[in-house]
Design a protein around this nucleic acid. Structure first.
Lengths: 352, 352
DNA sequence: TTGTAGGCGTTATCAA
DNA sequence: TTGATAACGCCTACAA
């Protein structure tokens, strides 16, 4: 016990270091280091001694020192547009959990869909020598592009899918989602199908969806009708669209412009559903509604909302797996793992 | 341009270091270091030279090296029960944003309400020499307690409030929430008020709420009636409770056991609302419903759900501010900032 | 399988 | 206000 001479260093965290463990275990510190990174490379006896010493000293490896020495720490940075919205949380959750399971930690920041904020988050992360970086979408400003390209670490783009780009892609096709919704409604017999765009300009993914919708419409000889609401709040915008497209048979002669509406997201759809319901509109008979996102409330609405569920959880998990493979933590599977195109599921409920 | 001799080191990240900046600016590297941590401590001329050099070299400070040298990095670890539930996301969001604004990064992990997972997350964080640590709730296992106590850094407990504990507290009183809901219903004239507990055992905060409810009931000479559903899924549990407490007037003689129900959370309340609605029950006339959580869907239900909103966003922001004050990044306000008791807001909607 | 030497990029310490 | 020097705790390279 009196062995434990405390040299009272002038600096330092005061916690036990790998040297303390090695000394107590009577091995070289590099042997202790090897034990912690890959126990199979250290002999039985010493392993046992090291384990005992580590336990006795409550040793916690200093990841900062390790990161500095090896020039890449066991952290992965993720920039996500926002954390508290209904969309991205499952991605963060599954991403973080998968990383943790393999000893990596998540460094998180949000961009609020701002390229400038994304850039500053990436820059801040870079200071931590992350093992990899995850960003959302394929649109970044030039500086961010350069930072990512020269970082020399795996970069993953999530929530979008751009086969020709360099980073690993994990996402789905918004264009296909638009097609999927339109095909579904066409098959159900609807013909006057409208698409309600997000009033938030800059939601490029919604534009991709409306493109897919328009393509299918034309394919069937139907006229695409894309409505862009002006109201800023999603529920209000949804109501506004509903009034314009389905409740607006003011003259009493003409049928309303739409007998089915695809919304850019479930918030818009919910606003429309509520206003339709309050106006006594029968849905889906008089007007079918399809949303996007499968938010938590979507199954609770009356009528419950038919919507398309993006694979948020899967995106997070696959992004993490691809990174761990790139880092050599997991064995690399056969074939090209750079492109990961996932499917969205159309969830058929009452509204369409 | 040919000045940029690349010394091709055998190791290292390849990025520009503070020494490169200092050399280009023709100052000592320590002066450059000072410039980045507190520009006011460096003279005008040199400051300008350093700034120019940093820009030219696209210098990104290496936080890992800085963290090692100063034995505490600019990261803060947060353990939250889960990220993708409806509850904690705003806390994470505001916490992260507030930290980022002051140059600190968020290290995130989730515990899924497991003390064991919480412990391993705290342990993992400690390896990063965080500047502070945030945990959720006041119940941890003994090891976690010890780790937190001996970490020598600010520790914040959020989402609960235990004045006598050591760490900084940022939360609200679940007991008071239970009282608040009960008082509201009593004042509205309801007398047969029941409380529906979470079927998930281990949700201790919900137990605190039911205690508060029971206290108010007794205070008014009323009999507390706490119902514990057996169904595991929240919506099912809510339906089950509704059937037992309000729709169960099978004999046709006795009035149902409850004319008002407080639910442990909005998910349960939503399940109840839906089943009540499908059974043709008029709410709140025949049965008033109060939830807890103010989830995203709560305002969209029919009738819209009267509920109590916990101050999730505020918790995150205040936790971050207290930490930054403790670290000296922000000026410390007067008085005791260790205890931060926030209010929950009762949001009056249609269901009660 | 184990050990030695030295460097990773920054900041604390001390002196000027 | 500025700078030289020595940690910080670990890991890579190389040797035994």
């Amino acid at each position: 016990m009196s062995e434990q001479n405390t040299p009272r260093k002038r600096r330092g965290s005061g916690r036990a270091t790998i040297h303390d463990v090695a000394r107590l275990a009577e091995v070289g510190s590099i042997t202790a280091s090897r034990y912690f990174s890959d126990p199979s490379r250290v002999g039985q006896e010493r392993s046992a001694r090291i384990a005992a010493a580590a336990k006795q000293l409550a040793y916690v490896p200093n990841m900062v020192a390790g990161g500095l020495a090896s020039s890449h720490g066991r952290v992965v940075g993720m920039v996500i547009p926002n954390i508290s919205g209904p969309i991205f949380a499952p991605t963060i959750q599954s991403f973080s959990d998968t990383l943790n399971r393999h000893g990596y930690q998540l460094l998180l920041a949000s961009s609020y869909f701002s390229a400038k904020q994304e850039e500053s988050a990436v820059r801040a992360f870079l200071g931590w020598s992350p093992a990899a970086l995850v960003v959302t979408g394929r649109f970044h400003n030039r500086t961010t592009e350069k930072l990512l390209a020269t970082a020399g670490i795996p970069v993953v783009e999530t929530w979008d899918y751009a086969p020709r780009r360099k980073p690993i892609q994990v996402g789905y096709s918004n264009h296909a989602v638009g097609e999927q919704a339109a095909r579904y409604l066409v098959k159900k017999g609807y013909r006057r199908i409208a698409f309600v765009q997000n009033s938030l300009a800059g939601d490029l993914s919604a534009v991709d969806r409306s493109d897919g919708y328009a393509a299918v419409m034309r394919e069937h000889g139907l006229e695409p009708h894309i409505y862009v609401p002006t109201a800023a709040a999603p529920f209000d915008a949804g109501r506004q669209a509903m009034e314009a497209l389905s409740l607006a048979n003011g003259s009493g002669k003409r049928p309303p412009p739409a007998d089915a509406i695809i919304f850019a997201n479930d918030n818009l759809a919910a606003g429309a559903l509520l206003s339709g319901q309050r106006a006594g509109l029968r849905m889906p008979e008089q007007c079918a509604i399809v949303g996007f996102g499968d938010y938590a409330f979507s199954s609770l609405l009356l009528p419950s909302l038919t919507t398309i569920r993006p694979p948020g959880r899967e995106i997070g998990e696959i992004a993490a797996l691809r990174i761990l493979e790139q880092l050599g933590v997991l064995p690399a599977p056969e074939g090209d793992t750079r492109l990961n195109l996932l499917e969205c599921e159309l969830i058929e409920r009452e509204s369409a």
